[in-house]
Design a protein around this nucleic acid. Structure first.
Lengths: 249, 249
DNA sequence: CGTAGACCCTAACGTAACGTGAGGGTCAAG
DNA sequence: CTTGACCCTCACGTTACGTTAGGGTCTACG
């Protein structure tokens, strides 16, 4: 059974142009063309489209989605599990926003003014404080998070610059090796990954190899983290994650 | 107390460029400028920004947001109530997506294939069938929705074309009057609005003036409906809604 | 007092993810 | 054999900003 563009379009509530676009960029190329050049999608094409749409809903950029899906380790099941987790995170974010509105309404009726921080807290997309519970859950009962905030409080702007520089160097190096076609077990890649761990250990909190592995998994599971790496080079987050797992063994 | 761009930016987790952009387009103009031309935001500017960000989160286009907020009837409280409703609608949509993932995972593990419709159902943004419960709630206990689906089932493609044409004529006319600066109580506007009601009455379901008023409110409360009108002319959804309320009196 | 570094401005081009025609084949029904 | 619904490939338009470029402003420090 195969479907034409308009059939797929109405099935998935996307425009025909969107399908053309995904074909042009290689994100979703239909498995067949008819004699006349018509795009023909089969069942597995549709499955792939579903994946793409879930990721898109979650706010991933299209090139990042492409990167994720061409990873050798990619399979439908783990992708669905990851999407499930991210969706429920998003749902709780929405709930926080609803609560913020309730607070605002309450303040409005009582004639009070909300603190500026409270007014905008729910819009922050990368404020660790908001996701404290989640982060702790991910990191187990360790005190890494507390330790991190304790240490970082005393850092000056110069410290931040230095830390950022150090980090950029490692990331740059990894991207370069990736460009060169190196695998995740490449010697230089492994050196850089270990350097990555030590940087965290020095600058933020004691970071064992095990915790580093956990962190790596988070880099790909959480689009906010993934973005920082994938912005440098699409697919870098996954690459780093895989390399970390090897280093951790 | 006033805030500079970067202060507001970090408070609300938006970029400085975004604030510039909102200023350029008139969506959020800071109430003051310093001697040197620096933008200075006060408390009510921040409240306005909060509103904008909520609407943005809900998927409204910026010009639509601007249109909403410059309406004479606009106030913070009703806006917050509306945003609350839309957010919880969005939240339940997310829950549906999570359930869809669970179904997909289940099918995957059992080696079954999901029906194509089920695979993509959650992505539809304007499928009335999905929002049946909600729509019914809005429309009271009336059978309007059932009647509508019953009638429309028998329509041929030609019928749809005719109905679309009729509708476009009214919408076009309203947009033209709006361009001409006519108020919502303008004679021609009122004639068109009544024609709008009669079209629904003829083509979809018995539509009293009261129900029409309800419908009008939905046009602005629901971005999926609002878009159909605001795409023709920004602010048209609100204009139509107001005109309908007058016609209904 | 002057100068470095963090901020601010306007202006203007770049980008992502499509939307929207233009111009032209394809195909099933009548 | 034609008409209307679909399909194709360009190719330029749009939204909501991102990103330099070029140049003032402000404050702390030597």
């Amino acid at each position: 059974m195969s479907y034409t563009v308009s059939q797929v379009a109405s099935l998935a509530s996307v425009s025909v142009r969107t399908l053309h676009h995904y074909d042009e960029t290689g994100l979703l190329t239909p498995s067949k063309r008819s004699e006349a050049g018509y795009r023909l999608y089969n069942d597995s094409d549709l499955e792939r489209l579903q994946q793409v749409l879930f990721f898109r809903e979650l706010g991933f950029a299209l090139d990042v989605i492409a990167g994720l899906m061409k990873e050798p380790g990619f399979d439908r099941e783990s992708a669905l599990l990851m999407q499930r987790e991210l969706l429920s995170e998003r749902a709780s974010q929405l709930h926080a926003m609803i609560q913020a509105i309730d607070t605002a309404l309450d303040a409005q009726q009582k004639g009070l003014t909300m603190s500026k921080e409270d007014m905008f807290e729910v819009f922050g997309e990368f404020d660790p404080a908001e996701h404290e519970a989640e982060v702790k859950e991910r990191w187990g009962d360790s005190d890494a998070y507390a330790e991190s905030t304790r240490r970082t409080k005393r850092y000056t702007k110069q410290d931040w610059l230095r830390i950022k520089e150090e980090g950029a160097l490692v990331v740059e190096g990894l991207a370069a090796r990736m460009d060169a076609g190196a695998g995740t077990d490449d010697t230089e890649v492994q050196r850089l990954v270990e350097e990555h761990r030590l940087q965290i250990d020095r600058n933020f909190y004691p970071c064992s190899k095990e915790m580093h592995a956990n962190l790596g998994r988070m880099y790909v599971a959480d689009p906010r983290f993934a973005k920082t790496y994938d912005d440098v080079r699409p697919g870098l987050a996954q690459f780093l994650c895989d390399a970390i797992q090897i280093n951790a063994e």
